[in-house]
Computed example of a mutant assay.
Amino acid sequence: MEYYVEVEQDTNGSVLVTCFDIPEFVSVGDDIEESLVNAVDGLEAALEIYIQQRRKWPAPAKRQGVNVYAVRIPALVAAKAMLHNEMVDQGVRKAELARRLHVAMPQVDRLLDVKHKSKIEGIEEALERLGRRLEVSLV
């Protein structure tokens, strides 16, 4: 899952990164390379906000421009975002998902925790309990 960001020189000499699709996101770095690396962490932090507030995580829209770069979030984080969106779409709360999975609430919390290194099988099973299937492709 790639998000397109705009990179611009800030007034204090640092490089500022914003995302077209996620207004809550902002990241900085000393140069473009560092700012794009930091952008991945910034996108993950923004996703945490969306999960806490039970708001749908926006799908990325392709953009073009001189100062536009693609930032790819890790596959596991993308899968967590998809699980979260499916829960929001269906109105399924964490407690209900825990019941469907026959697990305790902390396990569902970890499935949705962007920083937790969940097993992809757990995300896959959760999506199956929501009537969806996770597919992986190589591009």
Rank of each mutant, 00 (worst) to 15 (best):
M1E: 05
V5G: 02
Q9S: 10
D10G: 09
D10F: 06
N12G: 02
V15N: 05
V15S: 11
L16F: 15
V17I: 08
F20R: 10
F20I: 02
D21F: 11
I22N: 03
E24N: 10
F25N: 11
F25Y: 02
I32L: 05
E34Y: 01
S35N: 11
S35E: 09
L36H: 06
V37Y: 14
G42E: 01
L43S: 10
E44H: 03
A45Y: 11
A45P: 00
I51D: 12
W57C: 05
W57N: 02
A61N: 10
A61S: 12
K62S: 11
R63Y: 14
G65A: 00
G65K: 03
G65P: 02
A70I: 08
A70C: 06
R72A: 14
R72C: 07
I73M: 09
K80P: 07
M82D: 11
L83S: 02
N85T: 03
D89R: 06
G91W: 04
E96K: 13
A98F: 01
R99Q: 15
R100D: 10
R100F: 07
L101I: 08
H102R: 12
V103N: 03
D109P: 00
L111E: 04
D113V: 01
V114S: 03
K115Q: 12
K115N: 13
K115L: 06
H116Y: 15
I120N: 00
E121V: 02
I123G: 12
E128I: 05
R129D: 07
G131D: 09
S137W: 03
L138C: 07
L138S: 12
